[in-house]
Amino acid sequence: MTALGFLYPGHSAEDDYPRIEQLLGSDIRVDVVHTDVGEDAHRVDALRQIGTPERLAKGVEQLRLSGAEAVVWACTSGGFVHGWEGAHEQVRTLAVTAGLPASSTSFGFVHAARELGAAKVAVGATYPEDVAGLFAEFLRTGGLEVSAVRGSGSGTAAEVGAWGEAEVFALARAADSPDADAVLLPDTALHTAAHLSALEERLGKPVLTANQVTVWEALRLADRRVNAPGLGALFTREPIVQA
């Protein structure tokens, strides 16, 4: 049994995690601990406060007791708003506090795109344009080319958590560009686990979504590889060997 630990801010789309656990269909256990959000707002100043060391540390002990082999900060915007170096420092601090390998959803997107050989990506973000732009900048720093960025302007995670299939598909279609190797939907408040296969079929290319990528990143840290067709190309393709 491989136990994976996730620190998830508040309550929005955390039900994606038991769904993903079921779709993995193997000896993987997914443990989610909720962290305090403070102010639920897609503003840079508020997002910088979501993932402070103090907030993350409060959930770490519970994950250690669960037997987690790795921990991931399951909040994309709460990572990339600190920039590349700041997000690295956030993860380093989390790893030291937990005594476990650690990462975040933001880095998960970069690693997952590299895994698929997706050098050029399109971004469909639920955030306002300025926050979406910071995610694109983060990806570029990670070596990816961003062909298009679409921000939807939602103000809160609670708002995004209420989105259904129609809104998710509309966001993905609006974000896609013909030259993109993959489409990225970077918000862990967005329910996507039930739609991955259909999204990829509709767009004809890999789709990387926040909760999917978060679980994949934890598996990567735990040195586990699981074939799960219901979770999209990321969980079915052979890894790309980087030159």
Rank of each mutant, 00 (worst) to 15 (best):
M1E: 11
A3C: 14
L4M: 07
G5C: 10
Y8K: 04
G10Q: 10
H11Q: 08
H11E: 08
E14C: 08
P18K: 00
P18G: 07
I20K: 05
E21M: 09
Q22N: 11
G25H: 11
S26D: 14
S26K: 09
R29A: 08
R29G: 06
D31V: 12
V32T: 15
L47Q: 04
I50Y: 14
G51W: 00
K58L: 12
E61N: 09
Q62E: 15
G67T: 13
E69L: 14
H82F: 08
H82A: 11
G83E: 10
H88D: 15
E89H: 12
Q90A: 10
V96C: 06
V96E: 14
G99I: 02
L100E: 04
P101K: 09
S103C: 04
S104E: 01
S106K: 00
G108S: 05
V110F: 04
E115V: 02
E115Q: 13
L116Q: 05
L116H: 03
A118V: 14
A118T: 14
A119F: 04
K120M: 02
G124P: 13
G124H: 15
D130E: 15
D130L: 09
V131T: 07
G133H: 04
A136R: 05
E137W: 01
R140S: 13
V146L: 15
A148F: 02
V149E: 03
E159A: 11
V160Q: 09
V160E: 03
A162M: 06
A170C: 05
S177P: 01
D179K: 13
A182Q: 03
L184G: 00
T188S: 06
T188L: 00
H191C: 01
S197N: 03
L203T: 02
K205A: 01
L208F: 05
A210N: 07
Q212P: 13
L221I: 03
L221G: 07
A222Y: 05
D223Q: 10
V226N: 12
G232V: 06
L234H: 09
T236C: 02
R237N: 13
R237A: 14
P239I: 02
